[in-house]
Every structure is written in C-alpha cells, then in structure tokens.
C-alpha cells in the first residue's frame, strides 16, 4: 500500500481499515434483512408442515364441526369476503375523499392541523379499542346488531387512517407542475383533481388501500368484540347477517385441546395467507398497470 504513488502523504495509511469497516456495516445491514426473512420462512415452513394434510376441498366447502375430519371454514371464508368487500367500499371513497380534502382543499389553520395530527395518532390506536368502539357505536347505539355491517364499519374505522395517510402521501407526490398546467388550461379545481391529480396518484393510493385491507383481513380482536361467534353453520346472506371471520375461526381451533384442531388452524392460516398474498399481488399488478398507462 505504501508503495502506491497515488496515496496522498497528507493522511495516515488507513484505507484498508476504512474499507474493512464498510464491510462490517454491509454484513450488519444484510443480517437485518435476513432476520425478517428467515423467521418468516421458518413460520411458513412450520405452518405448511402442520396444515398441508388438512387442506382439502371440503375444508373450504364445509361448515365448522366438532368432528375435525369433516370440519371446514366455509362460514369464515364467506364472512371474511363479505366483511372485506364492505370495509373496502366504505374505506376507499371516504379515505380518498378525506385525503383530497386535506391535501388540496383545506385551508392551513390550527383546526386542520389538529385533524392531521389526530389522523396520524389514530393509525396507532390498538385494534381492540376500535372493536369496543364499534360494539358501543354500531352494535348497540345504532342497533345494527352483531352483523357483517357492524364488523365492516368497525374495520373501516380501523384502517381509515392508514388509507388517508397513504392517499395523502400519494397526492403530495404528484408534481405541482401538473396542477399548474391544468389550471393554466382553464380547469376548475375539481377537474384538476379528477383528470390530473387522481390519475397520477392512483397507483400509490391503490397500493395503500390494498395493504390497509390486508391488515383488516387479519384482524381478530375487533371482530371478537363485535361478533364473538365462532360456530356458524350458515354464510351471510345480507349485510345484517351474523358472521364470523377467518382469524377468529383459526383462533378458536388453536385454543382447542385436541391436536387435530391445531392442524385445522394451520390449514386455515395457509388459506388466509394465500388470500393475503393474492391481494398483495393484485396491488402490485394494479400499480404496474396504472404506471404503464401513465408513463408509456
């Protein structure tokens, strides 16, 4: 090293030490990533081992039963689909609407600032608190009953802050030059939102929405507060039907003493994960499609 002519005489010879330090940091950063991935892999492998034997067609089409060999999660799967569909239809318009208002319309005052801080804080409130709120507000006060609708409204409240934050982020990322160009052509404020801001922000908004719904699909705590039903032998037929969801069914099976039910729980988790994976892939697909539309 010291024979290197390019080495400045101003500094001590320390390049090797500096590079070694960089290497150490590299491995530290890599291990941070690996901790997450490896523990997820272990979890997945264990669940697959436990549950794969219990996966069958009738697991999807049968209602729960105290006989593990014929038990299925039809009511939970349908309950989850109903719940998420309703949650989505409440959250998407309200969340995007609130985000547009806060980003584009709201005057900058102390009032809107309080709202903004509140929304960020609400995103961190434990889900059981929302469950109790839903129980008091929707089930009892509004007398909707322990229904899919009450569950969906509760989950909508739970994920609304997440959707609003994601949508605001997306709207803020739209270059201001687009808005200026739109206004300069004689657009009104709403036309600018509809034809310029929202189309550009949509890929990120959709990603945020689907991630938020993925969280809602895995929530058990608020639904336990609302529904508390696990043994259902019918599927919801309308928003006021009673219901159960997959995480609750899984939770119920895990808490049974017999080993067979733990296998069923693992099988339920596999199905739940597959649905989540499907939703996330759909989010990625949507984002790519919109990006292509807007960039090519």
């Amino acid at each position: 090293m010291s024979s290197n002519q390019a080495q400045s005489s101003l500094f001590p010879e320390n390049l090797r030490k500096r590079k070694r330090f960089g290497q150490i940091i590299y491995f530290l950063l890599l291990s941070c990533v690996l901790i997450g991935i490896v523990s997820l892999l272990i979890l997945l492998v264990r669940i697959l081992f436990d549950g794969i034997d219990w996966l069958s067609w009738h697991f999807l089409t049968n209602f729960p039963s105290r006989h593990p060999e014929i038990a299925g999660m039809k009511s939970a799967i349908f309950g989850t689909i109903w719940t998420i569909a309703l949650t989505g239809s409440f959250t998407v318009p309200i969340g995007i609407g609130a985000a547009i208002y806060l980003e584009e319309y709201s005057p900058k005052s102390w009032f809107t600032q309080i709202i903004e801080i509140n929304i960020s804080n609400l995103a961190g409130v434990p889900s059981i608190v929302y469950g109790l709120l839903g129980l008091a507000l929707f089930v009892q006060w509004m007398s909707i009953g322990r229904s899919v609708l009450a569950g969906a409204l509760t989950l909508a409240l739970l994920v609304l802050p997440i959707v609003i934050l994601a949508a605001r982020e997306a709207i803020r990322a739209v270059p201001d030059s687009y808005r200026q160009a739109s206004y300069a052509l004689g657009s009104t404020k709403w036309q600018t939102q509809k034809y310029v801001v929202l189309p550009s922000a949509m890929p990120s908004i959709l990603t945020g929405v689907i991630l938020a719904l993925s969280r809602a699909i895995g929530e058990a705590a608020p639904i336990i507060a609302i529904s508390a039903l696990v043994y259902l032998t019918f599927i919801p037929t309308n928003p006021l039907s009673r219901f159960t969801v997959m995480p609750i069914q899984i939770f119920n099976w895990v808490s049974r003493p017999q080993d067979e039910f733990r296998g069923l729980a693992a099988a339920g988790i596999i199905i739940l994960l597959l649905i989540l994976l499907g939703m996330n892939s759909f989010a990625i697909y949507l984002r790519n499609r919109y990006q292509k539309q807007s960039e090519e």
């Binding site: 687009y178 200026q180 160009a181 739109s182 300069a184 004689g186 034809y195 189309p199 807007s294």
Partner: peptide, 25 residues
C-alpha cells in the same frame, strides 16, 4: 394561455395532452 419553464406535459398520451384543454372546457 401559459407555457412553463420546464416542459410539463401530463403523463398522458400525446393526443390526450392536446385534447385536455378542449375536453375540460
């Protein structure tokens, strides 16, 4: 009308860029 410092076409097709002002009006 106005033309800006940095070219700022919309992330839309060439056709839709030109048609934009006509459509909104």
């Amino acid at each position: 009308g106005m033309v800006f410092q940095k070219p700022n076409p919309f992330p839309k097709s060439i056709y839709d860029n030109v048609a934009f002002g006509l459509r909104i009006n």
